[in-house]
């Protein structure tokens, strides 16, 4: 399909430099900020059985308490948990591999947040299925990218 014929004339006459710039810009837009192997996008996964305790407002992003209670669907047990902070420079905060086949798991930790965002918890079960839930928070200053 030739899309360029539909573009205004000013866009058709462009230098190769500009075209590569456009390609670069497109590439950065398409680049996924975190690589998580999932069967579906996070927001299409069921959030059933995942309760998150996360403050709606935090003064700083230096230490935000996070608590998750995950209950596996009937007949399944937990294999792994992931805590993902999409706006952080390194989005994967924690990857917990659980070996003792629990049906219910309560995880507590403290997280550093670079910006106001939603924290995502992804739970992986033994049949290969996943569930995910998220909790938003607003912070007033940043922990990871400040110059102090």
């Amino acid at each position: 399909m030739n899309n360029t014929s539909k573009l205004p004339i000013s866009f058709q006459v462009q230098s190769p430099m500009r075209r590569s710039g456009l390609a670069w810009a497109l590439g950065t837009c398409l680049a996924v900020p975190h690589q998580v192997v999932l069967s579906k996008p996070l927001n299409e996964l069921s959030s059933e059985g995942i309760e998150l305790v996360f403050p709606r407002l935090a003064d700083t992003g230096n230490a935000v308490p996070f608590e998750a209670l995950v209950t596996a669907p009937t007949g399944l047990h937990l294999k792994a948990l992931k805590v993902i902070l999409p706006e952080n420079p390194n989005p994967e905060a924690l990857h917990l591999k659980i070996m003792d086949q629990p049906v219910q798991y309560r995880l507590k930790t403290r997280l550093r947040l670079a910006a106001s965002q939603s924290v995502w918890l992804v739970a992986y079960f033994n049949d290969g299925s996943e569930r995910a839930n998220h909790a938003p928070t607003i912070i007033t200053s940043t922990a990871c990218l400040d110059e102090s």
Partner: peptide
């Protein structure tokens, strides 16, 4: 480890606080 049996392994990222804190269940 519980009685030398691995029960949990965690890969931590830069988003973990200092001091690190982790609470997990033990049967």
């Amino acid at each position: 480890y519980l009685n030398d049996r691995l029960i949990m392994e965690a890969d931590l990222g830069t988003a973990m606080t200092s001091p690190v804190y982790l609470a997990f269940p033990v049967l």
